[in-house]
Simulated scan of single mutants.
Amino acid sequence: MRIGPNYFEHRQEYLYAWNPVGVVSLIISSVVGSFAFAAFGFFGVFLQNVPAFFAAILAFILTIVLAITTKGKYYRKKEAKDVSSNEMIV
């Protein structure tokens, strides 16, 4: 997708405290998987038995959708000027 930086950033001053893309997709998929599939059984008896599987698929899809929606805004707080060319990911 190439929406993140083209180098691996590990320094805390350049990163946000948390990335809402992962957190939001985890919360939404957990709630949907737990309540809609397991607790209330809206989609039948079969889906009451496999909510974790569907929650994992939903989290995977939501992570991609939210990453595209935010356009990588939360990958880094500010641009690092001291990254050499041999540290770049090709």
Rank of each mutant, 00 (worst) to 15 (best):
P5A: 06
G44D: 07
I27H: 03
Y75Q: 08
R11K: 15
F42W: 14
K81W: 10
N49Q: 15
F54I: 05
A52Y: 13
K81T: 14
N19Q: 10
E79K: 12
Y7I: 03
K81M: 07
Y7E: 01
I28D: 05
Y75R: 00
G41F: 04
A80T: 03
H10Y: 14
T70L: 08
S25Q: 01
I68M: 07
F43P: 04
Y14G: 02
I68S: 03
V65Y: 06
G72Q: 00
V21G: 08
V65E: 09
I27N: 04
T69K: 02
S30Y: 10
G72E: 05
I64Y: 07
G41R: 05
V23T: 11
E9W: 04
V50D: 03
W18T: 13
S25R: 04
K77E: 12
L58D: 03
I3Q: 04
A36N: 10
Y16F: 13
R2E: 09
A38V: 14
T69R: 05
F54K: 00
L47S: 11
Y7T: 01
P20V: 03
V65H: 01
G33W: 15
G22S: 02
V45C: 10
F46K: 12
W18V: 08
F43C: 05
M1P: 08
A56S: 14
A67R: 05
E9L: 08
L26E: 06
T63M: 11
K77W: 13
F60D: 10
Q48V: 07
